[in-house]
């Protein structure tokens, strides 16, 4: 049984992260030196290519998020790719039926490293209201998930917040995450590689 966790220590977002503060380094007139990994992380975090895997109403919220009013392009996610080979971020939005599980897993496997996964909405995160024999009870049963966005469906603000949490991960974790022992163990627990 999973322990009950209540969100009593809500983390407030740091606006400075969102506006892209420069990494620590040495600046002079006309030049700036920093760590390669920080620069690569900064570049990756602000040029994500999302792959929308939208199956139901959360996908409609995602469309609003991409459109001019909320405009995910402000976060460098201008280019929504529809080929898993090109994309870095798999956004799973909507109910995943058990029959869809292997398809979703195949899409994840087709993505190249580095790759991240965001589960948008209650259904993708936990099965949501569909506690039934035909629905996958959370996509984390078939693929590893980096960020969960709660809501049924979440508002575009929530999706943007989830995207910013992904940017935190992308910008701050090791740029060679795929070689880490912990990451390899995680993938092995899903039977990948």
């Amino acid at each position: 049984m999973r322990p009950v966790r209540f969100n009593i220590n809500a983390k407030t977002a740091n606006i400075a992260d969102a506006i892209g503060a420069p990494p620590p380094g040495f600046a002079g007139e006309g030049f700036f030196t920093s760590k390669m990994s920080d620069v690569v992380g900064l570049a990756r975090a602000n040029s994500m290519w999302p792959l929308p895997f939208a199956t139901s109403c959360c996908g409609i919220e995602f469309m609003a998020t991409m459109a001019s009013h909320y405009d995910l392009a402000r976060f460098g996610a201008e280019r929504v790719g529809f080929s898993p080979r090109q994309c870095d971020l798999l956004m799973v939005m909507g109910t995943i039926a058990k029959k869809m599980g292997p398809v979703l897993r195949q899409v994840y496997l087709q993505m190249a490293e580095p790759r991240w996964v965001m589960a948008v909405g209650a259904c993708a995160s936990s099965g949501g209201i569909f506690d039934t024999y035909s629905v996958l009870q959370g996509i984390d049963q078939v693929i590893p998930v980096d960020v969960y966005v709660p809501g049924c469906p979440p508002r575009p603000e929530a999706i943007i917040d989830g995207f910013m949490r992904i940017q935190d991960l992308v910008g701050q974790e090791s740029i060679r995450r795929r070689n880490g022992e912990q990451y390899k163990a995680l993938l092995n627990s899903y039977g990948i590689e």
């Binding site: 049984m1 999973r2 009950v4 936990s126 099965g127 506690d131 039934t132 024999y133 629905v135 009870q137 049963q141």
Partner: peptide
């Protein structure tokens, strides 16, 4: 009716 593998229905 319910999916018997669900573990978060605490």
């Amino acid at each position: 009716l319910e999916d018997q593998t669900r573990i978060d229905k605490d």
